[in-house]
Design a binder for these strands. Structure first.
Length: 485
DNA sequence: ATGTCC
């Protein structure tokens, strides 16, 4: 799809749509991509990112990351910073899967040690980390206790023995966004979520056993600082979010915002999917407090999943998880809105940052990073498709341009429908096994949809973020085992 | 993404 002719190239990897591109734009739109990626980007991205540039209170630019593609209202890969006093909060700028995110866990095992047990490990993970639409977890909670989880996130997990203290430190915001208020959650959302803690979900959610080969290390020093110290070291990466709970929170508040946006607040938007409310309004604050519940539920979900991964490896190897070196590298959130302080035109300002399919990537020395990563910058985890590999990167000072935000994954090039027509799940499983990747899936159709052929080249995305100085490559990770939702 | 429509 050709890019609009109004698109101007600002640098090697920065592209801009000026405010003249569309009536109502308050700021220009900026897209970070290589020439190859911008050429392949779907036209919906340009339309959507310029719609976002019209939202009240937006600061500097409406952004799209190199993995950007068409989404609900905002593009996936979208980033918008609003003035909290004059700006809006928009569920479409966060996504239905609130705090969908990635977690990376180390082991001190090598590929040679894991290979003979790979099938057993993946089969055990497939059993112990429930995957698929409508799956429910092993943790049984009352509605009341679920509300505590939603308010406390990983802190609840620590109390219940599902976390090591250092896990919280290696999670964005310590695994708990403060200000979550379960009284702002509908009964329906609680009912959908209370039995979903410790479940992977479906779609592009997965759990993967990966290898860090010496030839795939881009930066030795950062790799060492992030715990990649052994040749062919095995790591575990997984991707999941707030399940039906977050989905219901988003649905509830989109409905509410649509009913008040124009009538009560006189806000008009280019697309109903950009439904929003003033951040300082009652509705805006209620959504903010409810969204944080879904953020915290997702942190707790990933934490319980980590606990179960540790159990699987511990049982299989007959050794304590600590003895297997199963420490977290980091946990990153993809779909959030947060108040953060950033420099804007030489002034420190508090901004409401919407990240939708985009990763926070704090540079070296920034407040909010754990001590271990103060010198290195934040670990950034970018998931590729299950066939092609993923990246561990590091935040860098150049990220200031995007309020320290980078890409989150490959981004689709093919619709799910299209992929299912071209790929058969059973055949893909056999093909992958021949290439040394053992995969188990909850749904053959779901597996076909996630074929590597349906995604952008992760190498292009990682390279684009580095060339744009949003994050630097540390190590490329290759899959050997995968549990697919 | 999602008890893929209450």
């Amino acid at each position: 799809m050709p890019a609009p002719s109004a698109l101007k190239r600002i640098t090697d990897t920065t592209w801009e749509l000026p405010v003249s591109y569309k009536p109502g734009m308050l700021v220009p739109a900026r897209i970070f991509a290589t020439e190859k990626l911008i050429t392949a980007m779907d036209a919906g991205v340009f339309d959507q990112v310029s719609n976002v540039a019209c939202l009240p209170g937006i600061q500097k630019y409406a952004f799209c990351m190199p993995d950007g593609h068409w989404g609900y209202g905002f593009p996936i890969g979208g980033l918008a910073a609003m003035d909290p006093e004059t700006g809006v909060i928009s569920p479409g700028g966060i996504g239905f899967d609130i705090n969908c995110g990635m977690r990376l866990v180390l082991t001190n095992l090598t590929e040679e040690e894991v290979k003979p047990r790979l099938r057993e490990l993946v089969d055990a993970l497939f059993y112990r980390v429930p995957a698929g639409v409508g799956s429910h977890g092993f943790v049984s909670l009352s509605h009341d206790e679920f509300c505590t989880v939603a308010e406390q996130g990983s802190r609840w997990c620590l109390k219940r023995g599902f976390a090591w203290p250092e896990d919280l430190e290696m999670t964005e915001e310590g695994g708990c966004f403060p200000g979550a208020d379960a009284s702002k959650i509908s009964h329906k959302a609680i009912d959908r979520g209370y039995n979903q803690i410790g479940t992977l979900g479906s779609g592009n959610h997965y759990l993967e056993i990966q290898v860090a080969r010496p030839e795939n290390i881009y930066n030795e020093e950062l790799a060492r600082a992030f715990g990649i110290t052994i040749p062919n070291q095995v790591v575990i990466m997984f991707h999941c979010g707030s399940r039906g709970f977050g989905h219901q929170v988003a649905t509830d508040y989109l409905q509410l915002f649509l009913s008040v946006m124009e009538r009560k607040y006189g806000i008009t938007v280019n697309d109903r999917e950009l439904a929003c409310a003033p951040f300082r309004s009652r509705e805006g604050q209620d959504y903010f407090a409810a969204m944080k519940c879904a953020v915290n539920m997702a942190f707790a979900n990933r934490q319980v999943i980590l606990h179960r991964i540790r159990e699987v490896f511990s049982d299989n190897f007959g050794r304590d998880p600590a003895d297997l070196g199963m420490e977290m590298v980091y946990d990153v959130a993809h779909n959030t809105a947060k108040l953060e302080t950033h420099m804007v035109d030489g002034r420190r300002r508090e901004l409401l940052i919407h990240r939708k399919g985009a990763t926070r990537a704090f540079g070296p020395g920034m407040e909010g990073l754990p001590e271990r990563y103060r010198e290195t910058g934040q670990p950034v985890i970018i998931g590729g498709s299950m066939e092609t590999g993923s990246y561990l990167l590091a935040g860098e000072p150049g990220g200031s341009e995007t309020f320290f935000t980078t890409a989150h994954g490959s981004g689709r090039t093919m619709s799910r429908h299209q992929a299912k027509k071209m790929v058969r799940g059973q055949k893909l499983q056999r093909d992958m096994e021949e290439r040394g990747i053992y995969v188990r899936t909850a749904s053959w159709g779901g597996l076909a949809e996630e074929s590597g052929r349906a995604y952008k080249d992760i190498d292009d995305v990682a390279e684009a973020t580095e060339r744009a100085h949003l994050s630097r490559r540390v190590v490329r990770l290759l899959p050997i085992g995968n549990v697919k939702g």
